[in-house]
């Protein structure tokens, strides 16, 4: 097993592929955190997005409807978090955890109520790989980057848009200011509450779509617990990427790489029990977290509710 094994184009293609939902969820969380709210319910939002997206796609047969429904469902959870955290100044962490549990419970309940118990789980067609005409013929890079399903390309576009939005638009500047010093932003006439709600909604939608991509890209079916910690990992990716869109993209690819490698290793090495291979990504992110937290500087107003008339 030489070095080629680790740089096998198929592993790299898998990396981009499996990282896609992570990238998207991390973008959503990044936007939310930039506005000063810590959303720890991503895992629950993704679970809800996964089941709603799957069900709507299964029933209507159109994946687009599924994606839209998933976005709306997760945004509703975001709205609850927003009402509690922004309007009522409730502790974001506890509300977030409760919403995470709620999302998890609700998603499997919805699946059971619509589908019921079946011996064979219903399937939907997954997004097919799209080969970009000329680029996919490029040596190495072509197979690596340009033969993945459509959402993977779109998601990279989302990263670029998020970057442009945050750093090259006036609203992006206002969002950043809101996450750092809401009092300052407010005294300059920036609608802090509305901005935070908007970020939470849009971020929640991205997270919901990310959840819907799990059945639509990876498995074709829904199974309980299919999010498998990806929400939490996205949360860490935001920190690892230092609240910068392209930083989180890199982090997500790194995780995607380990996941793809783990899968590949499991196929190659039969002597190690599969459970240990499956553990690998989780152990890996814990190790990466050490790097992520070193010197990380979160938006200063993160976790702090803003009350205009509170006297400092």
């Amino acid at each position: 097993m030489g070095w080629q094994f680790f740089f096998d184009p198929e592993v790299l293609r898998q990396m981009v592929f499996v990282a896609t939902p992570l990238v998207l969820a991390a973008q959503g969380e990044l936007l939310i955190q930039r506005s000063g709210i810590l959303n720890v319910s991503i895992e629950g939002m993704m679970a809800l997005g996964a089941v709603v997206g799957f069900l709507v796609a299964y029933v209507t047969g159109a994946k687009l409807f599924g994606l839209v429904a998933a976005a709306l469902a997760a945004a509703i959870l975001g709205l609850v978090l927003g009402y509690a955290a922004i309007t009522l100044h409730a502790p974001q962490l506890t509300i977030g955890l409760a919403l995470f549990i709620l999302g998890t419970g609700l998603s499997s309940l919805l699946y059971r109520m619509v589908i019921g118990l079946r011996f064979l789980p219903p399937m939907i067609a997954t997004f097919p790989a799209v080969e970009v005409p000329v680029l996919s013929e490029l040596p190495i890079v072509g197979r690596w980057l340009f033969r993945v399903p459509a959402p993977s390309y779109v998601v990279i576009g989302v990263v670029a848009i998020m970057h442009l939005f945050l750093f090259h638009t006036t609203i992006g500047l206002r969002v950043r200011a809101t996450g750092e010093n809401p009092r300052c932003a407010d005294s300059l006439g920036i609608p802090v509450t509305r901005l935070r709600y908007a970020c939470l909604m849009i971020g929640g939608m991205l997270i919901g779509v990310a959840g819907a991509l799990l059945p639509m890209m990876l498995t074709g079916t829904y199974s309980e617990g299919m999010v498998g910690g990806r929400g939490w990992i996205s949360l860490m990716l935001v920190i690892l990427g230092r609240w910068v869109p392209f930083g989180t993209l890199m982090g997500a690819w790194l995780f995607g790489y380990v996941d793809a490698l783990q899968y590949r290793l499991g196929l190659t090495i039969q002597t190690v029990p599969p459970q240990f291979m499956l553990m690998l990504p989780y152990v890996f992110v814990v190790l990466v977290a050490i790097r992520a937290y070193r010197g990380a500087q979160a938006p200063q107003a993160l976790l702090k509710p803003y009350d205009r008339e509170a006297r400092a």
């Binding site: 750093f167 090259h168 006036t170 992006g172 500047l173 206002r174 200011a177 750092e180």
Partner: peptide
């Protein structure tokens, strides 16, 4: 002031001139 933003970003914040692009 927003400590982590630059001087010019702080000055124009909220009065960027009504345009979308910064």
């Amino acid at each position: 002031l927003v400590d982590n933003l630059s001087v010019w970003e702080n000055v124009v914040l909220g009065a960027e001139g009504g345009r979308f692009a910064l």
